[in-house]
Design a protein around this nucleic acid. Sequence first.
DNA 1: TTGTAGGCGTTATCAG
DNA 2: CTGATAACGCCTACAA
Lengths: 339, 339
Amino acid sequence: MPGRYKSSSVTLKTIAQAAGLDVSTVSRVLSGSPDEVARAASPTTAAAVRDWAQRLGYQPNPHAKSLRTARSNLIGVLVPRLSDMVLATIYEGVEEACARNGLATFVMNTYDRPTEQRAKIDLALSRHVDGLILGDAHRDAVVLDELAAREVPFVLVSRYASKYPSVTCDDYLGGCLVAKHFLELGHEKVGVVAGEPFASTGVDRSNGFIDTYQKAGFEALAVNSSFDARGGHEAAEYLLKQAPELTGIFAVNDFAAIGVLGAVRDAGLRPGRDIAVAGYNDTQLAAELPLPLTSVRSPLHTMGTRALELLVSVLSGKNPSSERLAPELVIRESTLSPD
Amino acid sequence: MPGRYKSSSVTLKTIAQAAGLDVSTVSRVLSGSPDEVARAASPTTAAAVRDWAQRLGYQPNPHAKSLRTARSNLIGVLVPRLSDMVLATIYEGVEEACARNGLATFVMNTYDRPTEQRAKIDLALSRHVDGLILGDAHRDAVVLDELAAREVPFVLVSRYASKYPSVTCDDYLGGCLVAKHFLELGHEKVGVVAGEPFASTGVDRSNGFIDTYQKAGFEALAVNSSFDARGGHEAAEYLLKQAPELTGIFAVNDFAAIGVLGAVRDAGLRPGRDIAVAGYNDTQLAAELPLPLTSVRSPLHTMGTRALELLVSVLSGKNPSSERLAPELVIRESTLSPD
DNA sequence: TTGTAGGCGTTATCAG
DNA sequence: CTGATAACGCCTACAA
């Protein structure tokens, strides 16, 4: 019996013996809902059972329970990578909501690679999770279609795809907010560091920005990038070479924006003075950078909790609709009026 | 039967019927080690069983297995917070190593609060994890002592405490490396943003730095801080007010260092020219900042994998010794020779 | 209101 | 080498 430790091996049997009752009676008291119990056991025995359970420190064995009920109270969570602070913060919300609902999670990184996505999904399913929260959805929803075909309950978070239930930020609106801000400042030549084309986040943020500029009669220059600092750096280098006359750059992610700041400085420009830079997500870092960064705040923690609640609702057989949370522009020194 | 989906309900029984064998035989083939099988089943039946298992897509039910064997192949992982890129990267290593060992993890945030630590430990134990990896150890090891008293197998990662098995970076050495670098550059008046006093990481890094300076005949000024950008900002403000003549500041964490950069700029100083700034962990960000940051690289991913391997070794009844990985100084523009 | 009797899918012990 | 049998802890008809 290797690997054992003093776990509470207090079982229903233990309590039954202590209370001089049958195991089934004990089970009824301990697992039923309040009113179920009321109808199935006398108040005195119920009290006695609960008392013993408390005193002995009874903890139901989750494996036995899962085996019996075919429900594991386990949720699989897939993210591109947890070392992306954005997803990690969303996960904090998921975890909190899980705790409230008596659920636990398996979190796994998929690095936005479809093979990994499939592999990790299978891993989660082999552990018999009740459902999945996917933070790594691609716009072409092939993996999701497969999942739906297997009738696995799942919800998306952060990114949406096809018509699957999701909790996202209104990224299009977020992009518009930045564009309006830039326009008010008088920036006419602007660029967008647009993120990965397979993620709805980057695409919507860029489109919101670009469309708003178009309506105002200007063309915004866009280029894709990875969501990290390096990606932002490279993309901004490209933009500045392509169009040195730019006076504003919107990066769809704070980390990319940091890379943009670096590239701007490398080009001999003063971010905030010569060129406005804005990011997205209002990461903790944004406010604390040497040059505080204008950014769109998205309710990351809330997205996590709502995603879990959405999944719970799906698991209970409902067919809830997706949710889109409101972004908010936070203006800081990285966007000032041009000289 | 709510919340069910097409899970592979192929059981041993299914295979036994298909192959015309007994369940116990099938089990022996499918669960034993290669040589155990060789002694317990004829090659032909073994092949047949494996063939059917493959063809039917058999997946053992982890709950049944856990119930029977009292081993869950589940690991609990506690971190201060996953939105700290450092811990998230360590976790990536843990996850990878888990996958290799057929294990899965529950990751939980404890926010460095002892009550949360205890609560999350209990949560993990109630799920019958086989062991724990703790990334949130405090130097006063009270929670750990409790855990040890309950004979729960666990290892520490990132931080160490008391004599419990751990995988860490040689943080003291890391601090020394920075000090030597600063000394070579001719900095005599220096400060340390030392992080939280309850974390061995911050303490060791500071001490390594301070001791090296002391040996060289100089006094380094130290102040505690939280590990994030805001903490670094506040700490640096304090240091610069206390001793405006400082020409170098070592922050024990890259995020704190970013805060330091901001404070330095706020004070009208040019980081990298007027004052050297160094961080720790060589986060992705360090290289991409507008002013690239000198930092000590710690093998985060490896720390994660080694921690899991250490735990596996503990679980197999061994008494392995702790491991301390080597840091490496990465010099960038934030530390140049003083004018 | 309580007790009895399976069975969820596995593994382990015991005969044959 | 293989098959019967029991048990892990829990839930739930069904019967009393």
